[in-house]
């Protein structure tokens, strides 16, 4: 009996110790490591290479934030999440931010209590089919079996699209991209649907990418971006402006090649403010003056990150399209650094 009381008291003490919660920024600094949620593996966006190093478009955002906050782009703990586990992981504090091609929607922002800090990829949902199926439009897919990742917006779009076109389908819910790939290649589903960028990335890993085509229909808007928990605005600002720094850097012509030279000081005041040689932007965020410089130096500016991971010279081969700078007719646009 006595023992029970003792252990009970011990448990209470232990639990009480875990309650105290500081701001995420202080937590990350104290920990010396950023916990960043990514996918379980989507080549080009986030996937470990042969040495176990995480690489990709989303991973670069994590690395840039780590570089801005901690000055070290390697100080990231990557937490692989599935479409289903990602929000719970973020809401529970297991990860500090989520960069997992996640669509910004009203209910996720308002009801699920997350803050999307921006958009790093403008995407839309597409369909991948084998060429020999002879399908040229998504409207021909009546009665098809479709592989779909559960817990995503694509699942809801798919239901809406088929409902509004009054055609039927058979959904096959799957957890991860690799499971979808296995079922799709074995013919257990006729079609694989997810964001068009994800489809291109998946197709690039196939043995014969040429045997598969993306259907022309893009059935939804999928603005993908990093997100943080509601209610911690300081941390939200850090992630938001790190992303904006990467975007502005491309616009201003700051690249990993010339950043050292430019940080000695230039005639352009905005470049100087970004690189911390003028003004106190870093201090306002609670970071060093060189925060944005570190973030850009980690993997280059937005354009460099895009070109290196998913651009036209990579096997994934995505064109900039909507994701070009606004000066080139795209939607990528950062508020000014002032």
């Amino acid at each position: 009996m006595k023992k029970t009381v003792f252990f009970g008291a011990l448990a209470v003490a232990g639990l009480a110790a875990g309650v105290a919660a500081a701001g995420t920024l202080d937590d990350v600094k104290a920990r010396g490591k950023l916990n960043c949620g990514v996918t379980t593996g989507l080549v080009g966006f986030a996937a470990p290479d042969a040495n176990g190093e995480w690489n990709g478009f989303d991973v670069s955002v994590c690395r840039a934030v780590a570089a801005a906050v901690l000055g070290d782009s390697a100080a990231v703990e990557f937490v692989p999440t599935t479409g289903k586990t990602r929000f719970t992981a973020l809401a529970s504090g297991e990860i500090d931010m989520l960069a997992r091609n996640t669509t910004w929607t009203f209910s996720r922002d308002v009801d699920l209590k997350f803050t999307f800090v921006g958009v790093n990829y403008y995407d839309g949902q597409g369909f991948l089919v084998p060429k020999d199926l002879g399908v040229s439009s998504a409207k021909d897919l009546d009665g098809a079996t479709i592989c779909i990742q559960t817990g995503t917006t694509t699942e809801l779009n798919l239901a809406d699209y088929f409902r509004s076109n009054n055609i039927s389908y058979e959904p096959v819910p799957i957890e991860t991209n690799s499971e979808a790939q296995q079922q799709y290649l074995a013919g257990a589903c006729d079609v694989f649907t997810t964001d068009a960028s994800g489809l291109a990335a998946t197709r690039a890993t196939f043995e014969n990418p040429g045997d598969h085509v993306l259907l022309p229909e893009i059935i939804s808007k999928e603005p993908l971006g990093p997100l943080v928990r509601h209610g911690d605005n300081e941390w939200g600002d850090v992630v938001r402006w790190t992303l904006n720094a990467l975007i502005s850097a491309e616009e201003m012509g700051i690249s990993s090649a010339n950043i050292a030279e430019l940080s000695a000081g230039t005639n352009n005041p905005e470049v100087n403010r970004i690189l911390g040689t003028e003004g106190t932007l870093g201090e306002m965020l609670g970071l060093d003056a060189g925060w944005a410089k570190n973030a850009i130096a980690a993997g280059g500016n937005y354009g460099e990150i895009f070109a290196k991971n998913i651009g036209e010279d990579t096997p994934i081969g995505l064109a900039r399209g909507l994701n070009a700078q606004w000066t080139n007719g795209g939607l990528i646009y950062s508020p000014p650094f002032r």
Partner: peptide, 12 residues
């Protein structure tokens, strides 16, 4: 898969 999977995930 339904209540504790998709429903949980869509409604938070």
């Amino acid at each position: 898969g339904t209540l504790m999977g998709i429903t949980l995930n869509q409604t938070g």
